[in-house]
Amino acid sequence: MTDQKVNRFLIPIAVIVVIFSIFKTIKNDKKEEQLKLENNYVIGEITDHKVTGLAETYHIYYKYSVDGTEYSKSVNYSFKYSDCQRTKNCIGVKHPVYYDIENPNNAFMDFNSTELDLKKLNIQKKRFKERIDN
């Protein structure tokens, strides 16, 4: 095969892979937003952090419990805890985990919020409700 024939074959495949990746990312974001809107959450804890492969893929492992059943998941997340492999300072950090009430294994950890953020939000909601009731 000549280089031109190879290019005619590889370029459409590469385009399909990129489009599929973008679609999957958008679809996952909608799921996360939907789970967040449903507001079913528990506090999860980061249990491990690993970097794998030549491309240094960051994986955060976490656990959470729903109705007495413990779940463990991992996620590829390099933004917030990129130094955790070296320092281990993220191990034990707690964040809310939003989950599907019908399938608690369908969940995600919200790295942008902390347990303290949720406590503050709940206090504000309680104060607001007390003002309305009075």
Rank of each mutant, 00 (worst) to 15 (best):
Y81T: 03
Y81R: 02
Y81G: 07
S82L: 06
S82V: 02
S82Y: 14
D83K: 12
D83Y: 13
C84W: 05
Q85E: 15
Q85R: 07
R86T: 09
R86P: 01
T87Y: 11
T87A: 08
T87R: 07
K88E: 11
N89I: 03
C90E: 12
I91Q: 04
I91K: 03
V93W: 00
K94T: 12
P96A: 07
P96F: 09
V97G: 10
V97W: 13
Y98R: 03
Y99I: 04
Y99N: 06
D100Y: 04
I101Q: 13
I101P: 12
E102K: 09
E102P: 02
N103S: 12
P104N: 06
P104H: 05
N105P: 00
N106Q: 05
N106P: 01
F108W: 04
F108T: 00
M109H: 08
D110P: 12
D110N: 15
D110M: 03
F111I: 09
F111G: 08
N112R: 07
S113R: 11
L116T: 13
K120Q: 09
K120N: 11
L121C: 01
L121R: 11
N122M: 08
I123C: 00
Q124W: 01
Q124R: 06
K125E: 14
K126M: 03
K126F: 03
F128R: 10
K129V: 03
K129R: 11
